[in-house]
Each structure stands twice: as C-alpha cells, then as structure tokens.
Amino acid sequence: MTQAFKLKVANLPVWVLHVQTLQATLIARQLQTHLQQTPDFFSNTPVALGLSALNPEAQPDFAALLQLLSQHGLRLVGVQGGSPTQQAAAVAAGLAVFADAPANRSAAAPSSAPSPALVIDKPVRAGQKIYAENADLVVLAIVNAGAELIADGDIHVYGPLRGRAMAGARGNRQARIFVQGMEAELLSIAGCFQMFEDGIPADVRGKPVQIYLNPAEELVIERW
C-alpha cells in the first residue's frame, strides 16, 4: 500500500503577537508601522496570538482578528495563553491552541546573574570541543579545522575560525558569533546552521564578521 503521509515532529518558527488590547484600530495602526519597517517579514507569516496580557474576562472576536492580520500579511494559526473560555472560542474559530511557553525561562533570567564568559587563550585544535554552558565563549587564539565551539550565549573568536561554532545552543535566537578571520566549516545560531562545502563567499572569507539571525531566521554573515 502506498504510504499516505509521514508524520514528523518539527520545531517550526512561529511568531507570537502578544496583544495588549483588543482595539482593532490600535492593532491595525501599529501593524502598519511594522509593515513599513520590515516589509519582507509580512508575507503570509504564520503567527500565534498571545493572550496572556489580556483580561481573562475579555472576549476577543477571533474571526475579525484573523481578517485584520491577514490584511497585513500575517496568517493567524493559533493562540497561546488566555483563559479556557478564550481558548474554547479560538478553537471554535478554527484556530489551534499552542502550549504555554515555559514561563520560568523569562522569569528566572533576570534573577540569576549571568555566568562569566568562558575565556580560552590557547589554540583550539582538531577534535577538541569547548562548551560554554549558560555563558558566552571567548577564544583568544586560532580555532582549527575539526574543532568545535559551543556556547549557550555568544561566541567571540579573536583569531581565525576554521572549525565549527554554534552559538545560542539552547535556542537563544539573539545569540551572535563574532569572528576576526572568517574561515569556518560550520556556523550555527539557535540550531539554524550553514555549512561551507563549496568554500566561503569571497567577500567575507578571512574577514572580520558577525553572524546573527534575521527575523526570517536566516543566518546573516556580515562584515564589520
């Protein structure tokens, strides 16, 4: 029998629009402002509505919101948070309910002091793996082909980077990689990675660069 489908789990990027109010005109105006700043972002982008900031008694009109957002290039696919009544109304309007984001992550962050950066002052060689848990990683020497740098925070390499560098290893999309001499085998931020099988683009090869994720979750390699 032909297989009808394959079911696979995927962590797809979905933006959450945390609504602070249900005033349609206000939402529309601010969406318009964002649209002007980053037009590429609003092209059928899947988005969930975050309801946690709303009064639990409030009764959002999901059908109207769906239409409002789609007019601005956002495809409303579900809701997150909110009261059971609000969630039931969302399901009735054909939306999905996303599990709550682990609230403790954002809550715990301010109270726990960030770990000091892990500083490495010797060459990182083939076969060596260095992991900066909950911290930034700073390397003051060469990182050779076959070596691996992993950090939950940012990675700084003040020398040639010829091995692999993975920043934001636990999913921090804001993490960045700074490199004095870009010759990497692989770069990754929050699991979005890029390999350089066919060599590194000439405009950044050997140059000082920073690497970050743009709103569309693409790895950007930029000279500085």
Partner: peptide, 13 residues
C-alpha cells in the same frame, strides 16, 4: 597537519 593538530590537542588536555 590535521593529525598533528589533533595530537597537540590531546597533549594539551
């Protein structure tokens, strides 16, 4: 060169 690099890493560790 790659293998020498590996050995240097092992010696250092």
């Amino acid at each position: 060169v790659r293998d020498s690099d590996r050995i240097l890493g092992i010696m250092a560790a």
